[in-house]
């Protein structure tokens, strides 16, 4: 005969912990739920209870050349920013972590500074600089501005990986005959990749959702999605905004999921 299982006494702390988690989750997900209801709502205003389900706002969003141009521009800009910021960010992080540079703390603070300046000021300052230097507002200027605010995210995540990096692994490769270049591509890069890509995900989202920096730097007919949405809202506050938000959320989510699949955030945790 087996012994009766021990009954676990009711644990107040655990119950509180679970409740808190549930509340946090609700706090995070509720706005998305409201946006979804608004997006599927047939009326141009939120009505409770919903009077029906309709895809008319999605149709309006996908049918509008203005929205579509803006969406493609945003995706394109965010993709370029993703590539640029992982290259620049990883290089900066390596230099900061490994470079044995004088005033490393100051330089780290300098590279992080775009995060500390309000983005609207970064946008305004760059706008002024571009105009004064006669550059105008080309799309690469917008990409450069987005990269400026996206790079610190890559530096942060890459530095985190480098912080726990056992340099003996690189030394082992060198003893085995790998030149510094080969050490970098065979060992260093594969091992810091999860950190770099995690930063890249942030960089993509920072650019794709970027509003304050873009505000001054977009040109007529070359406006990114957040700017178009903001201006649209001033004249037509209808479900197309919500539909656009849902599309943005899904796009950002799929980027995260694809990168997770490709490189695996598990590897990141293990390092």
């Amino acid at each position: 005969m087996s012994a009766a299982p021990n009954r676990r006494p009711f644990d107040v702390g655990r119950a509180a912990y679970l409740t808190l988690n549930a509340l946090l989750l609700a706090f995070l997900l509720l706005p998305i739920a409201i946006v979804l209801v608004f997006a599927l709502n047939p009326t141009p205003y939120i009505s409770f209870p919903p009077v029906g389900v309709s895809l008319r706002w999605f149709e309006k969003f996908f049918g509008s050349a203005e929205f579509m141009n803006a969406l493609w521009l945003s995706l394109w800009v965010a993709s370029v920013v993703l590539v640029l910021s992982i290259v620049i960010g990883a290089a900066c992080a390596l230099a900061l972590a490994r470079g044995n540079l004088p005033g490393r703390a100051v330089m780290t603070a300098f590279f992080m500074s775009p995060l500390m300046v309000p983005a609207i000021l970064t946008g305004l300052a760059l706008f002024q600089a571009y105009l004064l230097s006669g550059i105008g507002r080309p799309v690469w200027g917008l990409i450069a501005a987005h990269t400026l605010v996206a790079v610190p995210y890559v530096i942060r995540t890459t530095l985190a990986v480098l912080h726990n990096f056992d340099r003996r692994i690189e030394e082992a490769a060198a003893v085995l005959g790998a030149s510094p270049t080969r050490v970098f591509f065979e060992v260093t890069l594969p091992l810091i990749r999860p950190g770099v890509f995690a930063g890249g995900v942030f960089a993509f989202i920072v650019s794709f959702d970027q509003f304050p920096v873009s505000l001054f730097l977009v040109v007529p007919k070359g406006e990114t999605l957040p700017v178009v949405l903001f201006n649209y809202m001033k004249f037509d506050l209808d479900g197309a905004i919500a539909a656009a938000s849902m599309v943005s959320i899904l796009l950002a989510l799929s980027v995260v999921l694809v990168l997770e699949r490709l490189i695996g955030l598990k590897a990141y945790v293990k390092l």
Binding site: D166, R168, E171, V175, G177, V183
Partner: peptide, 20 residues
């Protein structure tokens, strides 16, 4: 002579295996 041309073997305390 740089490390990678010295043709030596080395074993580290932390083993330093390539985890990937």
């Amino acid at each position: 002579l740089p490390v990678h041309r010295r043709d030596m073997g080395m074993v580290f305390q932390s083993y330093a295996l390539f985890p990937h």
